[in-house]
Design a protein around this nucleic acid. Structure first.
Length: 878
DNA sequence: ATCTGCCCGATTTTT
DNA sequence: TCGGGCAGAT
């Protein structure tokens, strides 16, 4: 079973015998046994430290250890605290050993954080929790152990997206399909989508199979899987699917894990996809008692080795099965796996899922909100605990967020509250700006203002919908000399030189890694061009051997011309040498040797381009980061799964990131720019996702709002450049969905873009408290009074050009028409009423002369503001 | 092999 | 509009 990859032996994981409550034939509930009663009594008088300070709901979530539990944890309600305390509680009550707890998260960051926080509670015991990690890292662990059961060797490599795309491209080309017409990238996404749903090649819906490359979808997918097998490689999806397949095919193995995992905890359950859901179900089920319908204490079944997985389980293995088994399982809720009707007490499943349906924002990448909505059906008798007491934000922020999210249907329904009210708290501020440049400028000023009041930049964040919005803020902050950091930009591991170096290391550790081979065989240049690689490739494929092995063969023959043959000989010899050093030389030293001897570092040393020194620096950094690992293999494992680079924490800087990457974070002050129709909600979400797309966007808005602890500023602009074209935009419908009681329409002392809602203010979605009412607040009225005719002309409906649609591309069936609303749509064909040289006045930029005219767009040299491009509606002749 | 010019596309992102 | 990717030329 153990294959030498894991240093933790599987069967020796459990510490020396010590009576476990769970192993005794005692009833599960703490109301029964003597020990339990004693514990309950003790709890009443002297609850353990870690329980004090929990509110009643949190405490219930921590202490309900028996049976399925769903914790609906709203934003800022102490979710992580509950999760970590629950684990501490399980451990300290002796319910399970650390190694008997399966705790799954989505991201490495979450796993790290959880580990840290449990460490604080239980000390070194956290080190004994090998089954805490991401779905993928646990999947890898399972697979390394049982690789041979799914036809892999335990040394398999994990391919990242880039490798996958290159591989698929090869396959598409090998099939003689035009890879221009049928892009590999697109197909990689399709495969990813199928894998998210748990579909193997045999399982994909006929329509899907047909829609790619004239019906070749299924064949290509199968060819891809076959190729992965010969490469001894997995993609990310396989890290989930292979274990599922293995568990289905080998109930005995599954049973080992059933017996092992006494408690399962899942973080961010709303983000699970179908494959993850199936994976969890397999691990959480207790099929033992189906054979034996009489009520069985959960942990009694130690000796029931005869029990097997249910027949339903064997249906369609992931790769070979037929039919849509994911779908089938879906429809069976409550599933017989959980102990169906008339079968007596359902088997006990100590699974605890924590999540928030209102923060489900990853539907587009396969997450099924439905998993969380269906929890009670899936796990009959589940206890659902709502955490609604928020410890993060002001009442205004919570009020705004709650009112917004209430517009969604299909939610489990929570309302966050706080009892900390402070009359000094700011309401949520809504600001209008002329264009995105002004938006950035105004946000910059606001930040400087706060900075003058001694607020740390680290406490501020700008959360955007799409990353192109970041640039303008960056530009502005560079001008201002304001520190900022962009979170979630291009990553360390994605850099060319890092990927090259990793390819060398991969090939040393895993000689069958053809993708790595192809990447570096001619890097640095060795005169091994396309022709050589192609013949190597063909030879290797013909014999079904790795390319490195093929190279070793071919250099013995006269297949090749002398020059490439010599180069190839050198490559093969180098790799043989390095492989020999693998076990004897310290891995960091070996890494340096590899990069030196291969000529890779020299390649960059001889490169006189500006980036070269930086790349060399990155390579050094790469080797430095290897020091933390035991071996090169260990390092590669880490890099495959944990591909983030640490940020510089010391710097005091404003964070700029997307709303998606902000989930889980909090800041004193949050800026939410770009609340315009078409951008947020994003047009594509609307077009492709319809109603549910809109709801996901709304959840994204909810996530944005609830990141703020004390101050939240929302911005929308009148004009935004999209794909190089200036488009006039409408304020986001989400603004209409904010409650007037918690929101202020802010006046800025900048020139602002006043905005007249006209008939539009009648919210289309909000029956109760339309935000339009805010426009009768004193603040707004004052703002109105400042408006000049020039602005009204263009913001109002008088000039009546009208805008039919916003967003990009062709107008689709969902394009909105707002009668007589708003103007300033770019119109190239109509002659301008202005002439070059005209003296004009602009509300924001003052007086200037028209330098050129392009349709309704004017380039004006302003006396004070310099040259700007503006729409003709915004200026008047002087 | 390296450069140049043309064409396409253009949310969100983890593992 | 602007940048990345790729095909074709040098």
């Amino acid at each position: 079973m153990s294959n030498g990859f894991d240093d933790i032996p599987f069967f020796d994981e459990e510490p020396a015998p010590r009576p476990l409550r769970g192993r005794e034939p005692a009833p599960p509930a703490p109301s029964g046994g003597i020990a339990a009663r004693a514990m309950a009594a003790r709890d009443q008088h002297r609850a353990p430290d870690y329980l004090s300070g929990l509110n009643p709901e949190q405490r219930e979530a921590v202490e309900t250890l028996d049976g399925p539990v769903l914790v609906l944890a709203g934003a800022g309600t102490g979710k992580t605290r509950v999760l970590t305390t629950r684990i501490a509680h399980i451990l300290s009550t002796g319910r399970a050993y650390p190694s008997q707890i399966l705790a799954v998260t989505f991201t490495n960051k979450a796993a790290r954080e959880m580990k840290e926080r449990i460490g604080v509670l239980v000390g070194a015991a956290v080190e004994g929790m090998p089954w805490m990690g991401t779905f993928h890292s646990i999947g890898v662990k399972l697979l390394r152990r049982h690789a041979e059961l799914v036809g892999l060797k335990s040394s398999f490599t994990i391919l990242d997206t880039d490798d996958v795309v290159r591989l698929i491209k090869q396959i598409i080309q090998a099939e003689g399909i035009d890879d221009k017409r049928w892009p590999a990238k697109q197909f990689a996404q399709m495969i990813d989508g199928w894998k998210n749903k748990g579909f193997g090649p045999a399982d994909i819906p006929e329509g899907d199979a047909r829609s790619f490359a004239n019906g070749m979808g299924r064949e290509l997918y199968a060819a891809y899987q076959a190729r992965l097998m010969t490469l001894n490689a997995c993609d990310f999806g396989d890290l989930l699917l292979h274990p599922i397949r293995m568990f289905r095919a080998h109930p005995d193995v599954l049973k080992e894990y059933h017996d092992k995992f006494r408690y399962i905890l899942v973080d961010e359950y709303q983000d699970t996809n179908t494959a993850q859901y199936m994976w969890l179900r397999l691990l959480a089920q207790r099929p033992h008692s189906r054979k034996n319908p009489s009520p069985t204490p959960p942990h009694k079944g130690e000796g029931q080795t005869s029990s097997r997985a249910t027949a339903g389980d064997h249906r369609g293995s992931v790769n070979t099965g037929s039919g849509d088994f994911a779908q089938e399982e879906r429809q069976e809720s409550p599933s017989p796996l959980w102990g169906g009707v008339g079968e007596g007490k359902p088997p006990q499943i100590n699974i605890c899922c924590v999540g928030d349906d209102d923060q489900s924002i990853y539907g587009w990448r396969g997450a099924e909100v439905d998993n969380i909505l269906r929890f009670e059906k899936d796990f009959p008798g589940a206890k659902v605990i709502k955490l609604e007491r928020n410890y993060r934000s002001t009442e205004h922020i919570l009020g705004a967020a709650a009112h917004l999210i209430a517009h969604n249907e299909g939610r489990l329904g929570k309302t966050l509250f706080t009892d900390r009210t402070d009359p000094d708290d700011d309401k949520v501020q809504v600001h209008a700006a002329w264009d995105s440049e002004e938006e950035a400028r105004a946000v910059g000023e606001e930040i400087e203002q706060l900075q003058r009041q001694q607020h740390s930049l680290n406490d501020m964040a700008i959360l955007v919908r799409a990353s192109f919005q970041m640039r303008e803020f960056e530009d502005r902050f560079v001008t201002l000399g304001l520190n900022y950091r962009v979170i979630g930009g291009p990553r360390f591991y994605e850099r060319l030189e890092i990927r090259d170096a990793l390819a060398y290391f991969r090939l040393v550790c895993q000689p069958a890694d053809d993708l790595a081979f192809e990447r570096i065989v001619n890097t640095p240049k060795r005169g091994l061009g396309d022709t050589t690689v192609r013949s190597l490739h063909d030879y290797a494929r013909g014999r079904n051997i790795p390319m490195l092995a093929a190279a070793a063969d071919l250099i013995e023959t006269d297949e090749m011309k002398a020059k490439p043959r010599k180069s190839l000989f050198d490559v093969v010899t180098m790799f043989k040498r390095w492989q020999g050093l693998l076990e004897t030389t310290p891995h960091t030293e070996l890494a340096e040797t590899i990069l030196e001897e291969s000529g890779y570092t020299d390649m960059w040393k001889n490169d006189k381009s500006a980036e070269a020194p930086g790349r060399l620096e990155n390579l050094k950094e790469l080797i430095r980061s290897m020091e933390a690992f035991e071996s090169m293999r260990g390092f590669l494992e880490h890099i495959a799964l944990v591909m983030d680079a640490e940020q510089n924490e010391d710097l005091d800087a404003v964070s700029i990131m997307t709303l998606h990457s902000a989930k889980g974070l909090e800041f004193e002050t949050v800026f939410l720019p770009g609340w315009e129709e078409g951008l947020f909600p994003h047009q594509r979400a609307l077009d492709e996702g319809g109603r549910s797309g809109l709801e996901e966007e709304r959840r994204l808005a909810y996530v944005g709002l609830t990141r703020a602890k004390r101050r939240c500023h929302i911005w929308f602009v009148a004009n935004r450049r999209i794909h190089g074209l200036w488009q006039s935009t409408l304020p986001s419908r989400f603004l209409d969905e904010l409650p007037v009681t918690h929101v202020d329409v802010a006046e800025t002392d900048q020139s602002y873009g006043g905005y007249n809602r006209g008939g539009y203010g009648q919210s289309r979605f909000d029956k109760q408290e339309p935000f339009a009412n805010a426009y009768s607040t004193p603040g707004w009225k004052r703002a109105q009074a400042h408006k000049t005719d020039a602005t009204r002309d263009n913001w109002g409906s008088r000039s009546g050009v009208g805008i039919e649609r916003i967003g990009y591309g062709e107008s689709g069936p969902r394009a909105r028409t707002i009668d007589g609303e708003l103007v300033a749509k770019s119109k190239i064909d109509e002659p301008s009423k202005f002439n070059v040289g005209d003296r004009v006045f602009h509300i924001k930029f003052g007086n200037g002369n028209i330098a050129s005219i392009e349709g309704n767009k004017l380039t004006i040299d302003f006396d004070r503001a310099g040259q700007k491009r503006v729409l003709d509606g915004f200026v008047d002749r002087v």
